[in-house]
Write a protein that binds this DNA or RNA. Structure first.
Lengths: 137, 137
DNA sequence: TTCAGTGCAAAAGATTTGCAAGCCG
DNA sequence: CGGCTTGCAAATCTTTTGCACTGAA
């Protein structure tokens, strides 16, 4: 069980209550990497599809989860509050995606923002390519 | 009319033919900035919804359009073949966004892909912050 | 003329909503 | 207890498909 109490706290502070459905959705997100709604709904068996949607919507509003666009579809994952800040590189052939952490990338982005006179508040980086495995086919 | 002949050439070289529907979709994409399917379908009135989808799919395969992330929704826009490659930095206070072109950023991204054994095919970078003007308020 | 490409209509999937019943505080 | 939440089912919206007809080469 990961940070179930953190969840309770966040919900309470925002005026929402901790429920079985919300806990289930949270665990399903925490237990695995980025996943689509379909897979999340399956992972939350016992919880109605509509409730999963409603919970994800709430979690987004509370900054608990974020959506990543992967081509036409999107995937869900916990935000940096619950994971280490990172980006993704996705294989456009087999669809698997890996986390990316790169100090230099972060530095370059920070430098760009500074150069433009911006006070940096956030950024997203998504990379697509063909992974080593798929290149062999 | 933007580059309609370029389109004809690309299609022909890939073994496809130039048709009214394809030209319409292309113009609808060329005439405006990034847009969602819904808006594209409306812009292509006279062309069946299914044909727009099929055309977009083909255009993607041919590297004419790309789907990208703008906020949490997907958008379509012509690829760098038809526009200058760039990213965006957006002010989260006033909403204005400026184009970004940065050789170093591109280099770092390329290096990251290579290090992971990926054959790089594309990437998106979106930065948010507070612009100089808004910082003064 | 021939076959890729299109429109149409219906199927499949994804997401949202209204409402009555259930659970949390 | 009282209101926030959920499950259910139906409504919507989005995307895909099968098929017969049309148009490009």
């Amino acid at each position: 069980m990961i940070a179930n109490d953190d969840l309770r706290t966040i919900l309470k502070e925002a005026g929402y209550s901790m429920t079985a459905a919300r806990s289930t959705v949270f665990q399903a997100l925490a237990g695995r990497g980025p996943q689509g709604m379909r897979s999340l709904v399956i992972a939350c068996r016992g919880i109605d599809r509509a409730s999963v949607y409603r919970t994800v919507e709430l979690f987004e509003k509370l900054g608990i989860v974020q959506r990543l666009q992967q081509g036409w579809k999107y995937q869900l994952e916990l935000t940096d509050k619950f994971t280490v800040h990172h980006h993704h590189i996705t294989c456009s052939r087999c669809g698997t995606s890996a986390d990316l952490e790169d100090r230099e990338l972060e530095a370059v982005i920070a430098a760009m923002a500074t150069k433009r006179g911006f006070l940096l508040s956030g950024h997203q980086v998504e990379i697509q390519g063909i992974c080593r495995t798929c290149q062999g086919n």
